[in-house]
């Protein structure tokens, strides 16, 4: 169980290029933070670094209450531009797999279907879904498999107005339950969030 994330003096490189250095931030339970900055400033890279995919050039990411392997294997969700959904499989199969893989139960999957109104999509192949529908399907695992820290990369972008409001309620509920959110955004999140500037 993660009880806080601390990013200390982080520097990231992509290839030979230094994206930024000296980035520090902290997220505590019940708190949301948004990473803002120009395209290519390194917002996605910060999320991928917290998720453990990218090794920091300098500095470190510290999880309170869990060692890094435990935090990444059981404590956080990462939803990026690439949703990992297989286009030839049924939406139901993919939601089931993504949820079970991250520790969700059958009851959790049902809850996700209900909360995100995924019912009508369940028997469609993923390739028949629109961008917004795919995103909702990928967000399903956030609800089906409760994990403390949500790392979200432009989560709202493909969603319509009504779904944005719905997802806003979900984030508010997650924060109220002691969850944490770190999101890369261009438009502000519909929940109170601290803004962290990422400057190249």
């Amino acid at each position: 169980m993660i009880t806080g994330v601390e990013i200390e003096n982080l520097a990231l490189t992509r290839g030979d290029r230094l994206l930024f250095e000296g980035f520090s931030a902290q997220v505590s339970p019940g708190e949301a933070a948004t990473l803002v900055g120009a395209n290519g400033a390194g917002k996605t890279s910060i999320l991928r670094c917290v998720a453990g995919f990218i090794r920091p050039h300098a500095g470190e990411v510290i999880f309170a209450g869990a060692d890094p392997d435990e935090a990444r294997g059981q404590g956080l969700h990462f939803v990026g531009h690439q949703d990992g959904l297989k286009s030839t499989r049924l939406a139901r199969d993919e939601l089931n797999f993504q949820s079970r893989w991250t520790g969700g139960s059958a009851a959790g999957v049902e809850r996700a279907i209900e909360t995100l109104a995924l019912g009508p999509l369940m028997n469609l192949e993923v390739r028949k879904l629109s961008a917004g529908q795919r995103r909702r399907l990928a967000l399903g695992r956030l609800i089906a498999a409760p994990r403390t820290l949500w790392l979200l990369d432009e989560p709202m972008a493909p969603l319509d107005t009504a779904r944005r409001a719905m997802f806003g309620n979900l984030m508010a509920a997650h924060l109220a339950g002691g969850g944490m959110i770190l999101a890369a955004v261009h438009d502000p999140l519909p929940v109170p969030a601290r803004t962290l500037e990422v400057a190249g």
Binding site: G73, D83, K86, Q98
Partner: peptide, 18 residues
């Protein structure tokens, strides 16, 4: 390769199993 291209490898890296 497929899992890498569509982002499923990210998801696989965040599961409880090693």
């Amino acid at each position: 390769e497929r899992d890498f291209e569509d982002g499923a490898l990210d998801l696989l890296a965040l599961g409880a199993p090693s």
